[in-house]
């Protein structure tokens, strides 16, 4: 760092001198700029970049629960390919992500409805939809656990009033993932809605007036004007949803754990709900196999990078920036 700092002023003194006059002023300004970004840069390096590098290194080691690692080459990745739970975890994670993506059109629709001028109690609706976003996931999961209880839950009670005998929503292996995804949809709807509402404010009203003059109905206006104009927001929300959903952990952890006993102790649905991040947690922190856990984490990073890259490549086809 010191040698580059020494070399720089010599390399470009003239430009600084001609543009801004005296160099010391510019220099002080720059020092201030660095001072200002220092907290973020340091925070980012200490809490993100360094751990990422460390995790990447760990994935090639066989490390004990208290550090002290030995180089293991690609043994963790080879073991990962053999591990039977990995495949199911990938399937679970992508299925969950697909369901979350299906929630985006819903959020667009809700936002468009809530944006209507004549709607009464608009702000009340907005608050209600946004409330789950600012509620602690742990509290949300505990509440839903209680509602999903197969024998005494609210959901099955309501179903029983119309004569339906509901299943065990959170402990039936064939259903639990969908129950979980429903909570995920409910939790993210409000956040996505706010982004779409903001996007709708930016759509010029002339477009709508012109469309109405041409005789377009509300559905046609929604599909031909609202959706294309919102496409940058939809793109943004899609990217976020994919990244967040692929990393899903807290919901599964809370829903699968048994109060008063070890995490995920006895829920028969766990193998069909366990996400990649859950598997990472289990391997690294319950089974104390840090190296294997790190390898799982990097497989997830690989998926996220790949999917996000594809999304950016595809955006030219459908995202319209005004």
């Amino acid at each position: 760092m010191t040698h580059t700092a020494a070399a720089r002023p010599a390399a470009r003194p003239s430009r600084a001198a001609t543009r801004r006059g005296r160099r010391p002023g510019r220099r002080r300004e720059r020092a201030w700029a660095y001072l200002m970004i220092a907290p973020t840069t340091i925070g980012l390096s200490v809490f993100y970049l360094w751990p990422i590098a460390q995790t990447f290194y760990d994935s090639f080691t066989s490390s004990g629960p208290f550090g002290g690692s030995t180089w293991a080459g690609t043994a963790n990745y080879a073991a990962l390919a053999q591990e039977p739970t990995v495949g199911q975890a990938v399937v679970n994670t992508f299925l969950y992500t697909a369901i979350q993506l299906a929630g985006i059109p819903l959020a667009v629709l809700v936002a468009a409805l809530l944006n209507q001028k004549g709607l009464r109690g608009r702000s009340v609706y907005r608050v209600l939809y946004f409330l789950p976003v600012v509620t602690m996931p742990v509290a949300v999961a505990m509440l839903w656990r209680w509602m999903y209880d197969g024998n005494y839950g609210l959901v099955n009670y309501l179903l029983s009033t119309v004569g339906i005998h509901g299943p065990h929503w959170a402990s039936d292996p064939d259903i639990a993932l969908y129950s979980l995804a429903a909570i995920g949809l409910w939790m993210s709807l409000g956040y996505n809605m706010v982004i779409f509402l903001a996007g709708l404010q930016g759509v010029p009203t002339e477009f709508y007036e012109a469309a109405r003059m041409d005789g377009a109905g509300p559905v046609r206006i929604f599909l031909r004007i609202t959706v294309p104009m919102l496409s940058p927001n939809i793109f943004f929300v899609t990217i976020l949803t994919v990244i967040n959903s692929l990393q899903m952990f807290d919901l599964a952890y809370m829903m699968m754990s048994t109060p008063g006993s070890a995490a995920g102790a006895a829920n028969p649905a766990l193998p069909k709900v366990r996400s990649i991040t859950y598997l990472f947690f289990q391997k690294a922190f319950i089974e104390h196999d840090i190296g294997f856990g790190a390898a799982v984490a990097f497989v997830l990073v690989g998926f996220i990078v790949l999917v996000t890259f594809v999304q950016f490549r595809l955006q030219k086809r459908w995202v319209h920036y005004v």
Binding site: M1, T4, R8, A31, T40, Y48, L49
Partner: peptide, 20 residues
């Protein structure tokens, strides 16, 4: 979520000065 967009500032760390 925050793993993106980190390459920009990282390339300029060489210019950090005493204050930083």
């Amino acid at each position: 979520m925050n793993t993106r967009r980190t390459s920009g500032p990282a390339g300029r760390t060489g210019r950090r000065r005493a204050a930083a």
